[in-house]
Design a protein around this nucleic acid. Structure first.
Lengths: 238, 238
DNA sequence: ACAAAAGTGTTTTCGGTACACCCATGC
DNA sequence: GCATGGGTGTACCGAAAACACTTTTGT
């Protein structure tokens, strides 16, 4: 019985990369940094780093994000592992990608200027290192897939938001125009939203009522399959 | 510029584990092997092995499956990466899990008795090593999720199959009884099935017509969202 | 003739979609 | 008073669900 170790000739580096989506009220954005070390130093990149021996990949993702952006307590979920042999030309590295939806405003305080992270609109991404563009494409695909059935987009919104804002967000995600009458009926029929007494008056004269998410129902109904998008078959590819 | 290498103190082993579902006409099964090396030698396990330096994780999964079962050309897809620090008590190992649906009969020829792989009904799994039970739970969850919208269950069936067989399979996957009239209407309305002239006469006196999958339409409509299960909210957990 | 499984049709209900007008307000 | 965006209702259609009887054939 050789319990002490396996053959170690195949040990390799494992990295995590973090894809953070944020919504600023009018655009869907991704958080990127300028890579701080060679190779490709200075080029734009996802937040990434190596998994340490004594941490899980989830811990590594949280740590890397904290170190590079100051963001704390962001819930990320696993997306996919990328393992092309030369994906990082320096050395064989497998990367496990995580992604997350956050509310830009809530986290803005945490992200002071010590960090060089920057938000880019999805439509105006810079050139990215390695296979990061492919990673983002997959993340967007999954976002579209998941948001069609689960009420996850609320993660991107502040606590109080208006129906026009919410609709705008769906329109951005699916890159298609939705009918506001049908949209509001469908959303409200879930019973997930609580209408507030006050209005948001910046973006229109009349003002739009705020809503809050009913968090209890949100938890309970998360697995109810919704169907916000008329024909999800028509997903446009990123 | 130090291009030659990163710090290597955090290199670790990366493994793949393969979850293979098979349907024998009346039961949903999983393919398992008796582990061939320490620790836990002789215990039941998923097909697993270490990723080599010069192969992708997808290649590793295919190789491992071939080595341990003789199965060739099985399409597997990534499920999840497991990274708990002590998941393999011998040494820190991250495992990336793949899963697949196969037609037992078609692959039976490939699986001769040189290999000790064995099919277990989902309802009668043995005790498994490490976190393999958790992996299987997740795979089953994903199968349920995906099969509710995509016509993937045909992967589990032989080329010719009957509607009662197909319905039985859905009932096993979701552990719920379906109405055969609604079921057949729904399935046939997809236009994915081609009725054959002959009947399967083993499981009933009258016999049930065989159908074949229209592979052209299957490709084309894979992303059409179907909805075979009345209320997917009622998914029972594994 | 009867048991056992295959096969088929109708009605109701509900959710999805298309579509157009009035409302509140700041300028 | 008018331009801007917010908010609401209705009619039609198709898919989902509930539901029961007839057919075939081996024994």
């Amino acid at each position: 019985m050789r319990l002490s170790h396996y053959s170690s000739k195949n040990k390799m580096l494992v990295a995590v990369d973090c894809i953070i989506f944020g919504f600023d009220g009018s655009q869907l954005n991704l958080l990127l940094i300028q890579r701080g070390f060679e190779p490709e130093k200075g080029k734009w990149s996802l937040m990434g780093g190596f998994v340490q021996k004594e941490e899980t990949i989830e811990d590594a993702a949280a740590r890397v994000l904290k170190e590079l952006t100051g963001l704390n307590d962001v819930y990320m979920e696993q997306l996919h592992a990328f393992s092309a042999i030369k994906r990082d030309p320096t050395e064989r590295t497998i990367s496990i990608v995580f992604s997350s939806l956050i509310n830009i405003r809530e986290y803005r305080r945490q992200m002071n200027d010590d960090y060089h992270a920057q938000w880019f609109p999805l439509t105006k991404l810079p050139v990215l290192i390695f296979d990061h563009k492919e990673m983002i494409g997959l993340a967007l695909q999954k976002l579209r897939y998941k948001a069609a059935f689960h009420p996850i987009v609320f993660e991107l919104l502040p606590e109080k938001f208006t129906l026009p804002q919410l609709q705008n967000l769906y329109e951005l995600i699916y890159d298609q125009v939705l009918d506001k009458r049908n949209f509001s009926r469908k959303i409200l029929s879930t019973g997930l939203l609580i209408k507030q007494k006050d209005k948001e008056k910046e973006s229109s004269k009349r003002g739009a009522f705020y809503y809050k998410l009913d968090k209890r129902k949100y938890q309970a109904q998360f697995n109810s399959f919704l169907n916000f998008i008329p024909n999800p078959d028509n997903f446009r590819r990123p």
